[in-house]
Nucleic acid binder design. Structure first.
Lengths: 198, 198
DNA sequence: TAATATAATTAACACTGTTAATATTTCCAA
DNA sequence: TTGGAAATATTAACAGTGTTAATTATATTA
């Protein structure tokens, strides 16, 4: 009985891992059911024995990617000074991750909700608040030590959320600015401005 | 000789108008060559006598939509007080347009560049700087009258650009915030904060 | 080992964009 | 006005897409 579940979960992971590889490499545009199944070593129809549809499968990848991104961010920001400086480093690391994997950015913020996550509304919230969660500890530090008010925290964190998204969108889908160096520069200017650094 | 050109341009407009209707209604996801052609009253293959491919056609719509949006914005902001207030009204009107036509937002900011505009790089720039162009006169007014410096103008206009995009993305693709009223509220807060209004 | 339940596969359907071959219409000179 | 050439429109076809039904192969159990 429990063997069934182990085997089934293993089968699911074959397809999920395959989908993740494609998303990281070619992105959402080049993913297909036949594509995923071939890489997993099965026929395309077999996939439907383990997933309701391809959206269901792709959505499974979101959590894995968030975990991966979180690990990277924590590693990058470990040594940063607590407070605004750490929030800045976290944000930059977060942006770096999506620049490295534009396909994951598409999946997180571009693909229409209902097309990746049927009824699972909680997961939409999960995506929306991702950056906020990464910075949560630091925001709490700042308010608990009366370095900023709750209102200021609210305004800053939302400004950061929107601005970061806007910069990423223009860079990844409109190639603006034209190169990565310039992208890093404008990102830092915007982050500094929002967090009132320097 | 000149009749040929008139007729050809007319044929193109049939397909373009048809595509525009679909984009406004159902959005990019539901558009198709057969779809467009049927609405225009022609066979799908006829479209290829007037457009290189479907991207070429869809891209033609961008300019038209920008003109339409510009007209709306000018109408909405006509009576606004010159300077920051007018920039605020322009921005809000601009956002309103995309909320009304999410398909046009997709076309402008979400669909990958190379998938809508072959080699026409200028048009990418055209999309990127759209909001800036709408506000250009007001920014110039503010700098020319020494109400802000060139550097302040640069920071403010870019902050506005990124923030507005981020808000629209989350609202249109992630349904956050959940309702239009809340969307208007957070938009105003962000705009006020960037333009230092109130 | 035989019968049954489970899982994987192929075939098929309705879509997509695009191109080549075919059919139709338009145009102009004889 | 008619015949033939040029222009234009249409159908057929190809290679894709996601998904489902029918079929085949495998594993489980009596």
């Amino acid at each position: 009985m429990v063997n069934k579940e182990i085997q089934e979960e293993r089968m699911r992971s074959y397809f999920i891992d395959s989908a993740k590889e494609i998303l990281k490499g070619e992105g959402l545009k080049n993913i297909s059911v036949r594509n995923i199944a071939e890489r997993a070593g099965y026929s395309y129809a077999t996939l439907y024995n383990y997933f309701k549809d391809v959206k269901d499968l792709i959505f499974e990848c979101v959590k894995d990617f968030q975990d991966e991104c979180t690990t990277l961010v924590q590693k990058d920001s470990k040594k940063a000074e607590q407070g605004f400086q750490k929030i800045k480093v976290i944000t930059q690391s977060y942006m770096k991750y999506f620049v490295q994997y534009p396909g994951i950015f598409e999946l997180f913020y571009i693909e229409k909700t209902n097309e990746i996550a049927g009824k699972k509304q909680p997961t939409v919230e999960m995506i929306y608040s991702f950056l906020d969660r990464l910075c949560e500890e630091e925001w709490n530090y700042l308010t608990e030590n009366n370095l900023i008010t709750i209102d200021e925290k609210e305004l800053m964190s939302s400004s950061l959320r929107y601005t970061v998204l806007g910069i990423l969108i223009l860079y990844l889908t409109r190639k603006h600015p034209a190169n990565y160096k310039e992208f890093l520069k404008i990102s830092e200017i915007q982050i500094n401005n929002i967090l009132k650094i320097k």
